[in-house]
Design a protein around this nucleic acid. Structure first.
Lengths: 202, 202
DNA sequence: ATACTTACTGACCCAACGGTCATTAAGAGA
DNA sequence: TCTCTTAATGACCGTTGGGTCAGTAAGTAT
């Protein structure tokens, strides 16, 4: 009985290669990653990789997009469908969301974008359209609804949803760089939400 | 009269090369920057560059350090020497500082660190020791002083100075990535300081 | 003037890497 | 079982770019 040298698995290859690429890019950044290494980690020859992805750059873009696309719309739905009060929603689902993101692959994507964004403006656009813009809109709409319901005062937070997310960004950066100096990012965000609520509550 | 082909300026070269390198690294990131281009921009041959810097990596480190070292201690002094009330200091010098940083070369350094930090842990350590750690200590001490004077309540902000700086971080990232979608970062920080003060004022 | 030191140049080296393609063999269909 | 399609391989190629070093000439000392 002869072990076959490889199997043909046309369906699974792109996904497998993309996942391997994510790991390598995450560890080394785009420029320092080697296509050979991606192929090796995917258990595939370099030639095959180039059968599914035209260039290294296209592979990079595909990776970013696949990570982003998978996990965006959960929160967006939650806001629209929740029956919680605005305050309870902020303390609950929104806060949880903010705590999760810095630990998720999204953080890696953000790092890659910061590093390579200047050279891949179309990627930044994509990320803007599919993540940032959506997220900000949702938060803005959520705050507006609070105002309409008389739960919140009409403050600058209404037009600056970034205020809500700022400590999430800081936590992401912190975890990327200063792992050895630990920071209680959960408490950071707890306190921040507390502070915002105290500021905007009617 | 013969124009000399070059001048010997042993004293100035390292500085000039380092400045050129900063520009190139800022524009392209470390990996995508070419030593030849740095040399060209510094008006110098590649060989000379290698006379002053052993490797590209050493050049990178020297650049980061020179940018950082130059502009750190101003704020630190200001806190110790100010005669303003804690609230006035936050609304004044501290707020100004936070508004300036995202527009300064420090922002570039942060981007380079985020991009390359994993591969240069000693650089991250250096940045931690000389910038982040100092900055946080100063803010923490400042808040503590406010508490001691009875101007501030004793809140979590005391042990989480990151709370104060979070919107500054977000503004830095924003300016790096989303230049085309403008954000009023000054207003962002104004509002944030407003919010913190409302939260911690006695 | 002359001899000497050394800052500076730029042609060169070679390993590494992105990308190609002739060849192989897995697996489906008849 | 034979044929045919095409997924997959891996040796190979051209270029790029970090790093070197023999040679040159700017400046200095005598």
């Amino acid at each position: 009985m002869v072990e076959p040298r490889y199997q043909r698995r046309k369906e699974d290859r792109p996904q497998e290669i993309s996942e391997a690429a994510f790991e390598v890019f995450a560890a080394k950044g785009y420029a320092a990653s080697r296509v050979d290494e991606v192929a090796k980690r995917a258990g595939v020859s370099k030639g095959l990789l180039y059968l599914y992805f035209k260039t290294k750059e296209e592979l990079f873009k595909a990776v970013i997009k696949s990570v982003v696309t998978r996990r965006v719309d959960a929160l967006l739905l939650a806001v629209e469908e929740t029956e919680l009060s605005s305050e309870a929603f902020m303390r609950g689902p929104l806060l949880d969301f903010m705590k999760q993101i810095p630990r998720s692959p999204v953080a890696v994507v953000v790092r890659l974008l910061i590093a390579e964004g200047q050279r891949h403006p179309d990627l930044v656009d994509y990320y803007w359209d599919n993540v940032v813009s959506k997220g900000l809109t949702v938060i803005a709409r959520f705050v507006e609804r609070g105002v309409e319901r008389g739960e919140f005062r009409d403050t600058a937070v209404r037009e600056l949803p970034q205020l809500v997310l700022a400590p999430m960004m800081l936590s992401m950066i912190w975890r990327m760089l200063f792992t050895k100096h630990e920071l209680d990012t959960d408490k950071l965000m707890d306190t921040h939400i507390e502070m915002i609520l105290a500021y905007i509550k009617a």
